[in-house]
Design a protein around this nucleic acid. Structure first.
Length: 628
RNA sequence: GGGUUGGUAGCUCAGCUGGUAGAGCAGUGCCCUUUUAAGGCAUUGGUCCAGGGUUCGAGUCCCUGCCAACCCA
């Protein structure tokens, strides 16, 4: 086992656990006798003064001063000081699991402990527990990061969020608030008569939105399925089933980009309400935001991206076409042809031609208006071209009964009156459906099972689907989605330190694909353009195996394979081949050189010719010796 | 996809024009009966992200790659 500073600290702490065992103390007992949370004592000292309490939590500081010691104990509610006097702490006792004063040197910062004693104030006036009984509840064998500097390494914060929440009260509080927000959303909808249903995450078809799905395979049924990109079509089936107000608060999966406002796995609360239209939802969403603001945060104004946002006031409602006209003077409703619409777009300095008038309007909206929508705004009347599931407006069928929520320039939810005419919907879908785009995830599949459900009659229905993370970002003032998802998606890795400590190969955890191809296969795949270099620098690493001992003339004494870095991100392309037959036994250096020459003459030459834009380098050969 | 900055001890960070690898915290040992990031003395601890290159000599300069953050599209 490799030694490094961390593993020494680790084994030192583990040794303390062994010492405790030898004293008859279990370093990992099964329960605590906690009677009070820290905050309860701290908030009402008068009621607790002189009373004996038992507190439990993580040991965060330890200041020993001869026969006195001061410590801070952190529990879910906050920190509280422990005050230890040598002569007041009960001696070590195996029966009760007590730890005497002398044995406190077996404690470390980060350990989970329990302390029983009277609530007092020290001479300096700090509320403390004067410890009579001390128990170790869990021995921590890894040191916490420096608690004053905190965990600054962004990657570590995301990978080891639990350390962030131990050290940063603000992070700890934020994630607690997020849970309360989710609870408040549920309470709000339940109180309004909504029923929460569970809808499938693994779905045979991905519908209800346009996104690239995650694909999975169901062994029991022998077929491929997809992780939900939306739950909408199931909610609508529930309306068909006879429930008037339903919702699901679920996980959504979109196999697309990751940036500070997008995460492949996210949450949304999605509702469906029968016998209402989108105007009902405009009110519902306003009320929902206000309810969460007041019940979880006790206020209606929030600072979002340095803007003061007020959720108390009625939200502005404006149609998309009107908003664009207001901002730019261009009214896309007056356009008769796509060409005309694209001309107007060009007039706004947007050069990308759009395939329809509606899409031109959306483009203009996105470019000119969206960023400027700071106060909560409901933008309604989307073009029908981009809204195949929404119901056209009675007054102008080019637009649909749909609205999006914008807060501080961010889109925070998409909502519409559902198209419930099965014939119309099927027609729209067929028009929009382009087989070649299906696999690219640009458009959902044709879901005839859903159309059939609609044919039995879906009452007039409307739904809202605010993203939980976006909502949380607004309410908690975070600008990065990773800060509102406790366990954000990261590339799996194992640090060199942990690899050494746990005795594993780094590569066994990292997602490295060793693709073994024959040299001929590789060359033909490159020629066909099937595989292409990922990086401009290709590193060729020959691995040569030499057989020692006597080998009959004419038999191979060396073989080799070659790894090429630069064809895939984070992975090595492994080529098998290069057996070398030696007629006579040669010195090892010459044999090695022979294999390298072969590599140079064929593979390197091929790579340089095929990919002249790449820089091809050959690493020194790795030589393995093996006896016959 | 483009640009900028960064990667040095368990954590937070120094390290100048290239010349023996540094501090604070944490750890270890000792002293200390009211501390608040306690204090004092001593002390352990490093593949300087990886691979190449330049050089007598590279944490430092050059090239390539990996990872991260930020900004832009």
């Amino acid at each position: 086992m490799a030694t490094n500073p961390l593993s020494e600290i680790r084994s030192g702490r583990a040794a303390k656990a062994m010492t405790l065992r030898s004293l008859g103390l279990n370093p990992y007992p099964s329960r605590s006798k906690r009677t009070h949370y820290n905050k309860t004592i701290f908030d009402d000292f008068a009621a607790h003064e002189g009373k004996v309490v038992t507190v439990a939590g993580r040991l965060m500081s330890w200041r020993k001063q001869g026969a006195l010691a001061f410590a801070h104990l952190q529990d879910q509610t906050g920190k509280l000081q422990l005050f230890l006097r040598r002569n007041l702490v009960q001696p070590t006792d195996a029966a009760t699991g007590r730890l005497g004063y002398a044995e406190t040197n077996l404690l470390d910062i980060g350990d989970i402990i329990e302390a029983t004693g009277k609530v007092i104030k020290t001479e300096r006036g700090e509320i403390s527990v004067l410890v009579e009984e001390l128990r170790l509840l869990t021995k921590a064998i890894r040191p916490l990061p420096d608690q004053w500097a905190g965990l600054k390494d962004r990657e570590q914060v995301l990978r080891k969020r639990y350390l962030d929440t131990i050290l940063e009260p603000a992070s700890f509080d934020r994630f607690g608030k997020i849970c309360k927000m989710v609870a408040a959303i549920r309470a709000f909808l339940n109180q309004r008569g909504f029923l929460e249903f569970t809808t499938p995450i693994i779905q045979p078809q991905y519908g209800g939105g346009t996104a690239k799905p995650f694909k999975t395979h169901v062994n029991a049924l022998g077929c491929d399925m997809y992780l939900a990109i939306s739950h909408e079509l199931y909610l609508k089936r529930l309306i068909v089933a006879g429930y008037d107000k339903v919702y699901t608060l679920g996980r959504y999966f979109r196999n697309e980009g990751i940036d500070r406002s997008h995460h492949p796995e996210f949450s949304m609360v999605e509702t469906m309400t029968a016998y209402e239209n989108y105007e009902y939802n405009m009110n519902l969403i306003e009320d929902l935001f206000r309810h969460v603001a007041v019940t979880v945060f006790g206020k209606t104004t929030f600072t979002v991206r340095s803007h003061e946002i007020d959720f108390g006031k009625p939200w502005r409602r404006v149609s998309m076409a009107e908003a664009v006209k207001e901002k730019t003077g261009v009214d896309f409703r007056e356009c008769g042809t796509v060409e005309e619409a694209n001309q107007r777009l060009a007039g706004l300095n947007i050069q990308e031609n759009q395939p329809s008038i509606g899409e031109a309007l959306v483009k203009a909206f996105e470019v000119t208006v969206e960023q400027g929508l700071i106060q909560p705004t409901l933008v309604f009347g989307h073009p029908i071209e981009i809204s195949p599931l929404a119901k056209p407006m009675a007054e102008d069928s080019r637009f649909v009964e749909r609205f999006e929520i914008f807060i501080a320039g961010m889109e925070c939810g998409d909502n519409w009156s559902e198209q419930n005419d099965p014939v119309n919907l099927l027609e729209t879908w067929r028009k929009a459906y382009r087989a070649e785009e299906r696999d690219a995830g640009k458009f959902h599949t044709l879901d005839f099972d859903f159309i059939e459900a609609l044919e039995y009659g879906l009452p007039p229905t409307t739904g809202i689907g605010p993203g939980i993370e976006r909502m949380v970002m607004i309410f908690t003032g975070q600008e990065n989605i990773d800060d509102v998802i406790f366990f954000p998606m990261m590339r799996p890795t194992i640090s060199p330190l942990n690899a050494a400590i746990y005795g594993v190969q780094e590569s066994s955890v990292a997602p490295v694909e060793d693709l073994a191809l024959s040299v001929d296969d590789f060359e033909s795949l490159c020629k066909e353009g099937v595989i292409q270099p990922f990086a401009r620098n290709l590193i060729v690493k020959p691995h040569v195996r030499l057989w020692s001992g006597t080998t009959p003339a004419g038999k191979s004494r060396a073989s080799g394979h070659v790894e090429i870095e630069g064809f895939f991100s984070n992975s090595v392309l492994q080529l098998a081949g290069y057996k070398v037959v030696f007629e006579e036994r040669l010195p090892e250096d010459e044999e090695k050189q022979k294999v390298l020459d072969l590599v140079n003459a064929s593979l390197v030459k091929f790579l340089r010719e095929k990919f002249p834009q790449c820089h091809v380098t050959v690493s020194p050969a790795t030589v393995m010796r093996q006896s016959c």
